[in-house]
Design a protein around this nucleic acid. Structure first.
Lengths: 111, 111
DNA sequence: TTGATAGTTAAGTACATGATTAACTATAAA
DNA sequence: TTTATAGTTAATCATGTACTTAACTATCAA
């Protein structure tokens, strides 16, 4: 029942800096420097955030020469999306059944 | 650009105990005691998790007599789902465009 | 080969998080 | 009216997170 990957993905996305990094990467791959440019913090801090994103699997990176290029791995994003949508769907089915029950037991001549 | 609600929702869902609580609530409303029953921790600890879930907006609760009944608020779940699906969709559109570009620039007579 | 660039590691600090036990407050039932 | 139930608050503690600056290592360009 324990899903460490999901733990790490949600935890990674809980930080606004890391969501900003994912938003940037959603537009296409970027280097560490490009990722860091708009962020109001030091490069080592960005590196730590990147490490968290990579540990969760949401982002991958590879180094060529002295440049590390980062990109989104959509699989983990899908896993997160799936978990949330499943719970919401379950809750909404529950609501629908409740509605149907109320309709069925309601005194008639109401719409 | 900063979205505290989203921060709190993702952070709330990053903890396996709280995800377990949401999973339970997806099946229908529950009291604090019912929520706590399967969890390997003290009631005050469960209360703290519940507070985190309520502060994020993912869960609401109301007290009647001495019983507090908790239920999912699907709106915040939708917000989380939307954020994730938008980023994934954006990334995949990007990939598609890249694929189309590669197809267009590829030397011919390849499938 | 000198210097700038891109990234990395280390050490240290401040604050947040997740849990505990003990003690307390209502409400309901016997 | 006693007693059990459901929940709440407070005090405490250990650990984890999010940064900082300083110092370092490669790589590329002039």
């Amino acid at each position: 029942m324990i899903n460490y990957k999901l733990d790490r993905s949600f935890a990674a996305l809980a930080d606004p800096t890391r969501r900003a990094m994912v938003e940037r990467l959603a537009m296409g791959p970027a280097t560490v420097k490009e990722l860091a440019a708009p962020l109001p913090m030091s490069l080592p801090a960005v590196m730590l955030h990147l490490k968290v994103l990579e540990a969760s699997g949401l982002v991958t990176s590879e180094k060529q020469g002295r440049v590390r290029t980062c990109r989104i791995d959509p699989h983990c994003l899908s896993q997160v999306e799936l978990w949330v949508s499943e719970r919401r769907a379950m809750w909404e089915r529950k609501l629908d059944r409740l509605g149907a029950f109320l309709d069925a037991t309601k005194p008639d001549n109401e719409p």
